[in-house]
Design a protein around this nucleic acid. Sequence first.
DNA 1: TGAGTTTTCGGAAACGTTTCCGTTGATTTA
DNA 2: TAAATCAACGGAAACGTTTCCGAAAACTCA
Lengths: 338, 338
Amino acid sequence: MKSVTIKDVAKRLNVSISSVSRAFNNSYDIKKETRERILRTAQEMGYYPNPIAQKLTQKKTFNIGVVVPEFINEYYSEVIRGIQDILTSLGYQVLIMQSDNKHERELKNVKTLIHNMMDGLIICPSVKSKNMDYYLDEINKGYPIVFLNRIEQSFPANKVLFNNTKWGFFATEHLIYQGYKKIYHLSGSNDLGITKDRTQGFIKALAKHGFSKDDYKVIETGILPENAMARVQELIDNKDLPEAFMCVNDLVALSTISVLRQNQIEVPNDIGVVGFTETKIADLVSPKLSSVKQPTYEMGKSAAEMLMKVIKKETMSSNTIILNGSLNIRESSIRANQ
Amino acid sequence: MKSVTIKDVAKRLNVSISSVSRAFNNSYDIKKETRERILRTAQEMGYYPNPIAQKLTQKKTFNIGVVVPEFINEYYSEVIRGIQDILTSLGYQVLIMQSDNKHERELKNVKTLIHNMMDGLIICPSVKSKNMDYYLDEINKGYPIVFLNRIEQSFPANKVLFNNTKWGFFATEHLIYQGYKKIYHLSGSNDLGITKDRTQGFIKALAKHGFSKDDYKVIETGILPENAMARVQELIDNKDLPEAFMCVNDLVALSTISVLRQNQIEVPNDIGVVGFTETKIADLVSPKLSSVKQPTYEMGKSAAEMLMKVIKKETMSSNTIILNGSLNIRESSIRANQ
DNA sequence: TGAGTTTTCGGAAACGTTTCCGTTGATTTA
DNA sequence: TAAATCAACGGAAACGTTTCCGAAAACTCA
């Protein structure tokens, strides 16, 4: 378990510790031949500089921490791919921690990463900004942090966002243009800023097109199938069905379609459905699911690039990047002519 | 950016550095009152022990590294949840790295984690054991490593596995019992041990039930939709369709159903389909997808528990845990009576 | 009361690096 | 040829802890 240190290499070659160090950091004041000699025998002896010791003296670790709430679908997976593609090409390593949608664990993760001297952090918060003081403190101390998704636009920090209100609006307006006159929104939790924004977009679209209070409803189902299915079944039982559903995400949309089908209600012939945060399966199911695609990979890339700028001190202020998505209209929301 | 160190605390209280250290490690040889006094002012000054410096002197970091190939579906997400639930309850932190299905990046990740002094590692390899020498070296040095999934049963290390051959066999036999006489297997890459094992299970089941060479085929589609869809379309064009498909995973199964539907071929009325590595959507699509459920959460738990035993030196040998799954039969593979 | 024991604490080495400073010998310059 | 410059290297401090060792003070016991 004993690993070979810089001293062992120095002793073997009868050179000083400093020279070995210089050889590895290819410093200018070392002769080319000795440098090569040192590197060669170091290789033979299986020596590599201990990163922990390096961190103690240097400031840079070339490690970047990423905190995500979950991996429930490919959303954060693709975000991380975007982050990694940028950062690994620049010689950084990406360390990921999962906070399981719990704010406390998120905070603990962030502290762990900071204390382990990450050069910077990309944080995807679990819930809407409660207790962000710690983060603000660190930012003010000069610690490089970029937020991604699920954070308020007004929060004074560098961040990469998706405009959920806007695309919630478009998704809803699409249903309206299809001629659906009564539309229900199955919404996420109100604690979650992003799903709340989608709800706002929903309401804005209805307002613009003169829907009255009787023509729509917002039903808080959360983002997981179980509860959503129960609530839809309730609607059916109460004979309180709309002409279309605008759903907080694809999982809820698929759940809705599934329950409707069990009750011999067909999508889109009887009822239209549109999802949000498109996943691969949208294109594979029947009916194919209309949904809003988020630029996940690009969001990761942007966040990584922004973080690099912060680290290089090329920017100090609180920048916000808002990326565009697309509404992919498929079968589930195409209203039959009648 | 200058953080407060142990010296600052010691100086403020006119005690020695050692005493402050003792206070934090609640050592036995410090008076209770001084310990509390130190802890209190340390808190006031915002001091916490620098983990990097601690790592340099101690051997334990209470950090565990996890390397996964991807987050393409909820598979590794649930594995990680299992790992985290065990380890965080024991005071450990879990650091995750994603190797993007590339062996080189996996190796780099592992080295990064080891050099950063993780107390142990759980590795989910990306491809079948090529170049495992580095891992074996570390294990022989006494470094605690547990492997999970995608590794050969003969590999001499601690590991947690799913019996892909067995459940590939059961999935296939289920189709046979349904009366399907001609069955094709859409398989993953041969480089991937686990998908190869499923293929073996497929062939075993056919052999047991006396299928001849003409009654089955193995078609290597890989694990992603695009290629699978193309290959299925080829089969349709060549009028070379089986009575049932046994698919390497759910994504390929859904892709298959989708292509068949585009060609007016209905599942399960015309053709039966069964998937593998069940995901949430299996229950939400139409027809509901029959699939093999893997005990993902439990696999993570087992791996974490096994790693703890290795770290505590309660076990030295190469243990293998093989967990059981279940075959969930739904609509897609129920053959209509005829 | 004096020897032995225990409690509590300080000093200093150690962990494995980087980096500043200084020294040596060789080379250049006037 | 003497002075000045330069290339190449060694020594040692520093990073922030833990821990071993030893010593002072307090306590025990006969």
